[in-house]
Structures are given as C-alpha cells and as structure tokens.
Design a binder for these strands. Structure first.
Length: 209
DNA sequence: GAACCGATTGCCT
DNA sequence: GGCAATCGGTTCG
C-alpha cells in the first residue's frame, strides 16, 4: 500500500469541539474510522484509528485519574479535545484523547492505527524495514507505544489540542455501524478488567496483539 | 527514602 | 511463553 490522501487530509476540517465533550465510551466508539493526523518534520503522518479504550475518570480504578490530579494526569482533568500523553513502563509513550467537561478526567487511549499517511516515514520512525511488506505494515502502529513512536509523539505533546497544528483528528467519512464494532475487556490492566471498554473494528488486521 | 507496580514492547529460549 | 528495560507515582516504614 502506498500513501494516499496526504495532501487532502490537511485541508480537512478537524473534529469539532462538541465531538470531544461527550463521555469517553461514546467517543471511543466514534473515534474508530476517524483519522489521526500528525505533521512531523514537514511530513504528514497518521492513519485510521482502529482500536481504542475508554477510561472513565476518577471513578474508574483502572484510570490514572483514580487517585486524583497529579502533575502527570493534569491534562486529563482539562476540557475534552486535548491529548493526555504519559510514559508507560518507563519506555513507551501512550496517547489519549481527553473527553468530556473539565474536571471529569475521562479519556480514550489510542491503541492502533491503520497506516495511511507518511507510511514510509512512520516505518522509519519505528526502526522497521522500509520495504513495507505486509508484516511490516501491520507492525507500524499496532499498539499504543508503537503508534506514538511511529508518528513522533512524546511528552511534549501532553496537553496539546487535536483541533489544529501538528496534531489533528479528522473525519474520513468512514463511519462504522455498531455491528462492525467489537467491544471487549481493556488490555494490560489489573483493576476493573472485565468492563468491555476496548473497541476495535471487527476483523481489522491492524489492531494490537 | 526504599520497595513495588504498572493503560508496553522487543528480544530471548 | 518468559523476561528485561526503565521511570513516575504510590505506598509503606
């Protein structure tokens, strides 16, 4: 697969503020099929979101917000529409979309992309073989830490808005009907592990694991 | 302060 | 499938 639409996507209107001012579970479902776009070193990177997880805020034992506001979780407590980025296991960055009104700390973890824009550059950022075989493509952004590395997101993007500039979320016109969305338990958590708050596009080869 | 625990990944057997 | 890497936050002494 080669790049397509990379020029057009920059002209697309980012998702409106109202999109983010809803509960995390709804936003997590609605983000499937939307595009995450990143302008990095003069290139357009990104792809279609195919896997998300909802974190419900201060009342969700699995959320970093469960213990209240700390320097790390500050962005999560702001109004929806910005990024919450944190360092996972001291090694990988993970990026969330903050949702809902200020103070609720709801967020959606972006877990996997179907690479669409700047695919070669993303593979390079991941240190993968740039020949872009099928196996390589499926490995570019099929996990939360892989995704951030592929598009060059780090702690400097904590609190950054998705409305414009170098991070954007835009509508690809690919709405999935409910029957094409699979809900299951969130990955890698030990608390509230049975809640079906992980969402994937049914049958997608681009998801993690 | 010290010990322990992750919203993970990649490399090893 | 096991496990190390690596560090911020939380908990316990």
């Amino acid at each position: 697969m080669t790049d397509f639409g990379a020029k057009d996507i920059l002209g697309a209107r980012p998702l409106p503020r109202s999109f983010f001012l809803r509960d995390a579970t709804t936003v997590a479902r609605d983000l499937l099929g939307k595009a995450l776009v990143r302008v990095h070193r003069g290139k357009v990177l990104g792809g279609e979101i195919v896997e998300t997880e909802a974190y419900l805020g201060s009342a969700d034992p699995a959320s970093h917000a469960y213990r209240g506001l700390t320097p790390r979780t500050r962005a999560m407590f702001e109004e929806g529409g910005i990024a919450y980025v944190y360092l996972s296991y001291g090694v990988n960055f993970c990026m969330n979309v903050v949702t809902g009104p200020a103070g609720e700390a709801q967020a959606v973890l972006l877990r996997a992309l179907r690479p669409l824009f700047g695919v070669e550059a993303m593979a390079k950022n991941r240190g993968l073989d740039p020949d872009l075989g099928e196996k390589v493509l499926r490995n570019v952004a099929s996990g939360p830490g892989k995704l951030t590395k592929a598009i060059g997101v780090n702690l400097s993007h904590d609190g950054a808005p998705f409305s414009a500039g170098e991070l954007r979320l835009v509508d690809l016109g690919l709405g999935y009907p409910a029957r094409q969305i699979v809900a299951g338990p969130r990955i890698g958590i030990t608390k509230a592990k049975d809640l079906p708050l992980r969402f994937t596009v049914k049958g997608s080869p681009w998801v993690s694991r």
